[in-house]
Amino acid sequence: MLSLKKLVFIKINKYMSYPDIKHELLGYLRYDSEFDWYESQVIFYETQLPISLSIDDNDKVESALDRAICIVPELKHYAKSAKEYAVEQLLKLKNETWLDEGDKITSEEFKSRIILEGLVFLPEGKVEFYYNDGNLFLGHCIILKMDNNNYFVDASIHG
Score class of each variant (00 low, 15 high):
Asp103Tyr: 09
Ser52Val: 08
Ser54Tyr: 11
Asp133Ser: 15
Asn150Ile: 08
Asp103Ile: 12
Tyr85Val: 00
Gly102Phe: 10
Leu91Gln: 03
Lys6Tyr: 10
Asp59Glu: 14
Gly118Asn: 04
Cys141Asp: 15
Ser40Lys: 01
Asp20Met: 08
Leu91His: 04
Arg113Trp: 07
Tyr130Ser: 08
Asn95Trp: 03
Leu136Ala: 04
Lys83Val: 02
Glu46Met: 02
Tyr85Asn: 02
Leu65Gln: 05
Tyr78Lys: 03
Tyr130Asp: 07
Asp66Thr: 08
Thr106Gly: 04
Ile115Glu: 11
Thr97Trp: 03
Lys5Gln: 15
Glu62Trp: 14
Lys6Asn: 08
Lys76Asp: 15
Asp147Gly: 07
Asp154Tyr: 12
Ala82Phe: 04
Phe121Gly: 01
Glu46Thr: 10
Lys76Ile: 10
Phe152Val: 03
Glu34Cys: 06
Ala79Asn: 09
Glu39Met: 12
Thr106Phe: 05
Asp133Cys: 11
Arg67Asn: 09
Thr47Val: 10
Tyr31Val: 04
Leu4Tyr: 09
Phe110Ile: 05
Pro73Asp: 15
Asp103Arg: 05
Glu96Pro: 02
Ile12Val: 06
Val8Gln: 09
Asp66Tyr: 12
Pro73Ala: 15
Ile115Asp: 05
Asp59Pro: 01
Asn132Thr: 06
Lys92Met: 05
Ile71Val: 15
Glu124Tyr: 13
Ala86Thr: 06
Trp37Met: 12
Ile114Pro: 00
Val42Leu: 11
Phe9Asp: 12
Leu2Cys: 05
Ala82His: 01
Leu7Trp: 05
Leu93His: 15
Glu108His: 05
Ala64Thr: 05
